[in-house]
């Protein structure tokens, strides 16, 4: 990790605006939060701005802070805290995030980094000569079984060798990133054993019938909307879990109101706990 600052003024665009579609989405996201708590939407909005522009610009931070009614410094704190926000321009065709955490490192991540240094730029967060590629080393992406791996935008490319990574980088650089299949790059289905099953062989093995769904192309509609579950909600009317409680409870009147709301539970199907 390194000191994270905003990019130089020379590369900062003068202004930022969400596209029409994203603006509607942003409004819906802000509306998810109660009145006065709009600032909670800062992380999804910054992320959407990054998806739109490739990186988080100063103009984006300021315009999102204005949208949410928060001080610029508060938005800057968030943007600099999370390393997932790119504060400098990244490659227009690919930003290669190489996992360098222990399992990947043991399986050859250092070779992948050498490839990036050779093919893209000697330093991370630096664009190559044509501005199409950049790379960085990231912490664990959760694909340790298929180590080593890289992440390019939202897709993971796993079980890599230095040669395969070179091909992938070349593919993206040529603008043919969409043709490269994400997921394991060897004879492996998801995270099943390499070269086929080693146990439970009598059961019909899963077939690699179609390409895995590309995360960056997956449409939101495909996901079935699942209503929020109450399964893990404790059956209690404690203050902390009481949805009627508005913080901060500053006056006796509000406290009395909250006390009245006690007895209502989140889940109507579960009977309210009798007050002791």
């Amino acid at each position: 990790m390194s000191v994270r600052r905003l990019a130089e003024d020379t590369v900062q665009p003068a202004s930022f605006a969400f596209s029409k579609e994203n603006a509607a989405w942003a409004e819906a996201t802000i509306n998810k939060y109660p009145k006065g708590r709009e600032q909670s939407a800062i992380i999804p909005l910054l992320m959407r701005a990054q998806e739109q522009d490739g990186w988080v610009t100063r103009a984006a931070i300021e315009s999102i802070a204005d949208m949410l009614g928060m001080a610029y410094i508060r938005a800057l704190e968030v943007a600099t805290f999370y390393t997932q926000f790119q504060l400098k321009p990244v490659g227009s065709r690919a930003h290669v995030q190489v996992c360098g955490t222990t399992p990947c490192m043991l399986r050859g991540a250092e070779d992948l980094i050498k490839v990036c240094k050779k093919k893209i730029a000697a330093e991370p967060f630096t664009l190559n000569a044509s501005g199409t590629l950049s790379w960085e080393e990231v912490e664990c992406q959760g694909a340790c079984v298929n180590a080593p791996m890289v992440m390019i935008f939202k897709d993971a490319y796993e079980d890599l060798t230095a040669e395969r990574l070179e091909e992938i980088i070349d593919g993206f650089d040529a603008g043919k990133g969409a043709e490269i299949e994400p997921g394991p790059q060897i004879d492996r289905i998801y995270s099943a054993p390499e070269g086929g099953l080693t146990t439970l062989q009598l059961v019909e093995a899963p077939q690699k019938t179609k390409a895995p769904v590309r995360a960056s192309k997956a449409k939101a509609e495909q996901a079935v909307s699942v209503p929020p579950s109450n399964a893990a909600k404790p059956e209690t009317a404690a203050d902390v879990t009481n949805p009627a409680l508005k913080t901060p409870a500053t006056a006796k009147k509000a406290a009395a109101k909250n006390a009245k709301a006690e007895g209502e539970t989140v889940d109507k199907s579960k009977p309210a706990k009798k007050p002791r």
Binding site: M1, S2, V3, R4, L6, M70, A71, Y72, I73, R74, L76, E77, T80, F81
Partner: peptide
Amino acid sequence: GIAELGLIGRGEDAEITTYL
């Protein structure tokens, strides 16, 4: 009553500053 100073960055790289 004015959010001027902030802690940017994280961990070892945390710094106190005003916006820009």
